[in-house]
């Protein structure tokens, strides 16, 4: 008979093997319908565009060059592609403003919820959760109802006689910004609330006891303690903003494109799949940078408290 130690070792080997078998379906599905295709995008970014979309299997770095540059048709010199640069800039700046403004509204909201009595607190959280789980397209569409020319805002302002002509908000950067703030606000409120809920208000009492005023308590005690929630919320808002596609398409009209729309354009009317692939990878890299920033800051702030 095998010794107990051999039996134990065999059991552990079998356990690890079983754990691989158990996780295999999930890993295989994700590989086939998510990760694997991403690797093929990398390959496509180095090929030559086909005349009617698709690719020709010939190596080329033109796709990557075209991300930021354009080749002059007459003298073959390279110059920055202003159209692409402005789209990059719009994506990054709108995502940044969205993050700052959702924080501006989200922080007091999370604070408000966290300071309600436990019973009503659940109701407030629930009220934030409902929009969070509502279809993004429907919420974008709902925003359109408010800001379009015959929409709620313009109708109200005209009825009150404040304006004569409807404000053109639709199809501007402002419309995209409003839409993104509206849609991603719950993603800011929920993680901040999660940190705030754990906040021990005896620390706030201690702050007041040591002569801090309301602002000082907020800045020196509450804010540092819930910083992990603020960072998590900011990253949860910034990353999907960067990759936004539906919101700029519906609210921004055809002209005010963000990176997502630029990518789609290359796979559709633009018929430049390698360029589309290269922009996709660029977008992914931007997201990874944001995530790395988060990982470094999140672990750093935990270390400070531990």
């Amino acid at each position: 008979m095998a010794s107990a130690e051999e039996v134990a070792k065999e059991a552990e080997r079998r356990d690890i093997r079983d754990r691989w078998l158990l996780s295999a379906p999930a890993l295989i599905i994700i590989f086939l319908a998510a990760t694997g295709p991403l690797l093929i995008v990398v390959i496509y970014s180095f090929l030559t565009p086909g005349p009617y979309g698709g690719v020709v299997w010939k190596f080329s770095t033109d796709g990557w060059l075209s991300v930021l540059m354009q080749r002059d048709i007459f003298d073959d010199t390279l110059a920055f592609a202003d159209a692409h640069l402005s789209i990059f800039w719009r994506s990054i700046s709108l995502s940044f403003y969205t993050t700052v403004l959702t924080l501006f509204f989200g922080f007091p909201t999370a604070y408000f919820i966290a300071t309600r009595p436990p019973k009503t607190r659940e109701v407030w959280v629930f009220l934030v959760t409902i929009p969070f789980w509502t279809n993004l397209l429907i919420r974008t569409f709902a925003m359109q109802q408010v800001i379009r020319n015959e929409g709620l805002v313009n109708t109200a302002l005209m009825a009150l006689g404040i304006i004569k002509q409807p404000l053109q908000i639709m199809n501007t950067d402002a419309a995209i910004l409003l839409g993104m703030i509206y849609i991603y606000l719950p993603l800011m409120v929920l993680p901040i609330y999660a940190s705030m809920e754990k906040l021990d208000f005896r620390l706030v009492e201690a702050g007041y006891d040591l002569y801090a005023g309301r602002w000082q308590v907020l800045r020196r005690i509450i804010f540092p303690l819930i910083k992990p929630g603020v960072i998590a919320g900011s990253i949860l808002v910034f990353i999907p903003s960067l990759g936004a596609y539906v919101i700029p398409r519906v609210l921004g009209g055809g002209k005010n494109m963000m990176l997502g729309n630029l990518i789609e354009l290359q796979f559709g009317a633009g018929r430049n799949w390698p360029l589309g692939a290269a922009i996709s990878i660029t977008l992914m890299v931007l997201v990874m940078i944001a995530l790395l920033f988060y990982v470094r800051n999140a672990s750093g702030s935990e270390g400070a408290h531990g």
Partner: peptide
Amino acid sequence: FDFPSAGEILLHGQDIAS
């Protein structure tokens, strides 16, 4: 719930360690 690294555990004279 665990197995010994060495030695025997007998229950009424029979090794049950494994």
